[in-house]
Amino acid sequence: MDVFMKGLSKAKEGVVAAAEKTKQGVAEAAGKTKEGVLYVGSKTKEGVVHGVATVAEKTKEQVTNVGGAVVTGVTAVAQKTVEGAGSIAAATGFVKKDQLGKNEEGAPQEGILEDMPVDPDNEAYEMPSEEGYQDYEPEA
């Protein structure tokens, strides 16, 4: 019985440690998101679009440190934060509304985080759909 109880105690310690790591990862992701939003706020009209992409990228980098179902929630929060940063930029006159959601080359930025393969159960990952990809044929 002692062996059984000791095993359960060790398992509990492992769960607590994993929860603490997840909590730490979420806190880091939130900190990076805040950094990115402050970065966007300090940019001029020309830099705002690039700044919004930076927020998304920093958040995406930190999301990889967070495991399990938390990833889905962090990704949703990050996307809403990026959308909010863009709205703030438009409201303050840093950028025109028609410039939001495009990178410096004018290509749409939507789907940055949505296409990231995420499995809350950590069982399997699927690649994003290939609808947006084109076949590449090298020139002879």
Rank of each mutant, 00 (worst) to 15 (best):
V77T: 06
V49A: 15
E35K: 10
D98T: 06
Q79I: 09
A89G: 08
L8Y: 09
K80G: 05
P117D: 10
P138E: 09
A107P: 07
Q99W: 07
S9Q: 08
S9K: 15
G67W: 12
E35R: 09
E114A: 14
G31Q: 05
L38R: 08
E57F: 13
P117G: 07
V77D: 02
K58S: 08
K6S: 06
V3P: 00
Y133I: 11
K80A: 07
S129W: 12
A19N: 01
A27W: 08
Y133H: 02
V3K: 04
D98I: 15
K32H: 05
L8K: 00
Q109D: 12
D115I: 04
V66G: 02
A78N: 03
V74F: 08
K34A: 10
M116S: 08
T72C: 06
G93I: 11
V66I: 15
T64N: 05
A107F: 14
T33S: 06
V71N: 04
T44K: 00
S87W: 02
E130T: 07
E61C: 10
K10W: 06
D98A: 14
E28R: 12
G14K: 06
G31S: 13
S9P: 00
P138A: 09
I88Y: 08
V15C: 05
E57W: 07
T22D: 05
V70W: 03
E139Q: 09
A19R: 04
V77E: 01
D119G: 14
K32M: 03
L100R: 01
T64A: 15
E83R: 10
V77I: 06
K58F: 02
E104S: 05
Q134M: 05
E28I: 06
M127V: 15
F94G: 05
V37S: 01
E20Q: 08
E35P: 02
E139C: 11
E114S: 14
K10A: 10
V52K: 00
A69C: 03
V71M: 02
E131D: 09
A30E: 00
L8V: 04
D98V: 07
Y133F: 13
T75F: 11
E20G: 05
P120V: 05
P120D: 13
A30V: 05
G84V: 05
K96C: 12
A76Q: 09
G47S: 15
Y133K: 03
G25H: 15
G14D: 07
V82P: 05
G84Q: 13
N65Y: 04
Q109F: 04
Q109A: 12
A30R: 05
A76T: 11
A91R: 02
T44M: 13
V48I: 14
Q62D: 04
S9G: 04
H50W: 14
Y133W: 09
K12L: 11
E61I: 11
E110Q: 10
K34T: 05
M127A: 11
G41I: 09
A78D: 00
P120W: 12
A107T: 11
G47Y: 11
E105Y: 08
V40N: 01
Q24E: 07
D121Y: 15
Y39D: 15
E131I: 13
Q99L: 02
E130H: 14
V66C: 06
A69L: 01
I112C: 09
K6G: 01
E130M: 06
S9T: 04
E104M: 04
S129Y: 09
T72N: 09
G86Y: 07
P108S: 14
L8T: 00
T59F: 15
G67H: 11
A56F: 15
E104V: 04
A27V: 12
T92Y: 04
P120Y: 12
Q109E: 10
K23Y: 09
G51L: 11
E139R: 05
K80W: 15
Y125E: 12
A17H: 01
V26D: 00
V118A: 03
N122D: 11
A78G: 07
G106F: 04
K60W: 08
G41H: 02
E105W: 12
A76R: 07
T44C: 05
G7A: 09
K23L: 07
G67P: 06
G132K: 15
V82E: 03
A85V: 07
T44H: 03
A76V: 11
S129H: 13
A89W: 14
V118H: 11
L100N: 13
V15I: 12
G36I: 15
V95Y: 08
T92C: 04
E131N: 11
A140W: 12
K32I: 09
A76I: 06
G106E: 10
V74G: 03
V15M: 15
A29D: 00
D115H: 04
S129M: 10
N122R: 14
I88A: 05
K96D: 07
P128W: 01
K34G: 05
E35N: 11
A11T: 07
P120A: 07
E46M: 10
K10H: 09
G41R: 13
T92N: 03
M1A: 03
G41C: 03
V74Q: 02
D115F: 05
I112D: 06
D115K: 14
E137V: 12
V74W: 09
V37P: 00
G36C: 04
D98C: 13
A19E: 00
G86H: 15
K45R: 15
Q134P: 08
G73L: 15
V66P: 01
Q62R: 07
M1T: 00
H50N: 14
Y136F: 13
P108M: 07
A76D: 06
V26A: 04
A56E: 01
P117E: 14
E104R: 11
E126T: 05
F4L: 05
V16W: 06
E123W: 01
S129Q: 05
D135E: 11
E139A: 06
V37C: 09
G86E: 15
D135A: 02
T92L: 09
V95D: 07
G31I: 15
N65P: 03
G106C: 10
S42Q: 07
